[in-house]
Design a protein around this nucleic acid. Structure first.
Lengths: 193, 193
DNA sequence: CACGTTTTGAACTGATCGATACACAACATA
DNA sequence: TATGTTGTGTATCGATCAGTTCAAAACGTG
């Protein structure tokens, strides 16, 4: 019983996410967010309360999106090692295609650390979910024989996530696709037999 | 034949560097820099011209400092593998002792990308020097038998630098010392025989 | 001691920051 | 069609941003 929205809220979050992703949290002004989303200031504040709250929504959207994509690969067909290799390939190809933006979570951790608020909680949660996903795949790899045994799967997962972060940073600093593939290949060789 | 400075320029750069290191480029205001250095606005602008120029000085100072420390370890005694292990150990201990600030270069790449100016040039230069240092050590390791042969030393150097960046991010997001040591150990095992 | 040069402190610049106020427009319901 | 509720556009808020101005202070040199 009131005036309806003229815009799609999820689409607005998606556009805001890209603005934050490209320029970082601090360097993205509320004016930038208005232009990116196509909304007026009133609509932005009426819908999302504050810049930080919109960032929180953007981060949550990014996290869910990324986890779903990674889960689709890591729980797909093939041996665990093949799936991990496919994950690395997808990461490199995505970076080369999308303009070397890196990872919003990685960029945010580097810029803000892990603040003691809802943003920090979101960053920690994303990390834990990524680690759980990777550790599960590693355990499957030990069972199917494609991943070397003898290490704690949680440690191997940390190693893989560290490599993923390293690759995102390599991309952001402009490293070549060959160099990134070489790094991924070395990391893969380290955990397979 | 004029009034002398009341402060040490290098010490001011060092304090400014810590301010940028802790809070990032955008989130560090000129007021913050005045308070961190203990200088007035006039002195800051008279000496360093602009916030960005002071950041450039801070980054150059950090880069030189870091490269010298790493060079001391990687060109020290022991086999190449032992020196690389010592480098990882030093990194982890430094992070645990210094409050998980990560690496200023890594943080800057994540926040600003690699801009097409003197800051970007500094970031690229630091990366190239780190890679050259690591690649040299890897080549020595192949000769002394402590590092596995069969890979391009430049690729192995990229892998090591990627791991270093990954560890810096792990630290910044609050990972445990054990997890960081486990990642370093896995990376080391990947390149040694 | 007086002069020339530089540093320093404080006040201040226009611009932009994140956020708000408020009138009006647009709809669902009665 | 009248009413109540919510969305939107414009103007604006005080605060803070990076950076400047300028006069007084502090020295080395003559």
């Amino acid at each position: 019983m009131a005036r309806p929205r003229e815009f799609d809220e999820t689409a607005a979050v998606e556009r805001a996410m890209h603005a934050f992703w490209d320029h970082g949290y601090e360097a993205t002004s509320t004016q930038d967010l208005c232009e990116a989303t196509g909304l007026g200031r009133s609509s932005v504040y009426n819908t999302f309360s504050s810049k930080r709250a919109l960032f929180r929504r953007s981060l949550a959207h990014y996290s869910a999106r990324g986890l779903a994509g990674r889960k689709a690969i890591l729980e797909g067909p093939g041996t665990a090692a093949e799936r991990i290799a496919a994950m690395f390939d997808a990461l490199v190809e995505e970076e080369l295609a999308d303009g070397r933006r890196g990872c919003l979570v990685v960029n945010t951790v580097a810029e803000l650390g892990t603040p003691d608020d809802d943003i920090g909680a979101l960053l920690r949660q994303d990390t834990e979910q990524q680690l759980a996903l990777l550790a599960g795949c590693v355990r499957e790899g030990v069972l199917d024989g494609s991943v070397r045994d003898g290490r704690d799967p949680a440690d191997v997962a940390e190693f893989l996530l560290s490599t993923i972060s390293g690759l995102r940073l390599m991309s952001r600093r402009g490293a070549s696709g060959e160099a990134m593939h070489a790094v991924a290949d070395l990391a893969l060789a380290a955990i397979t037999r």
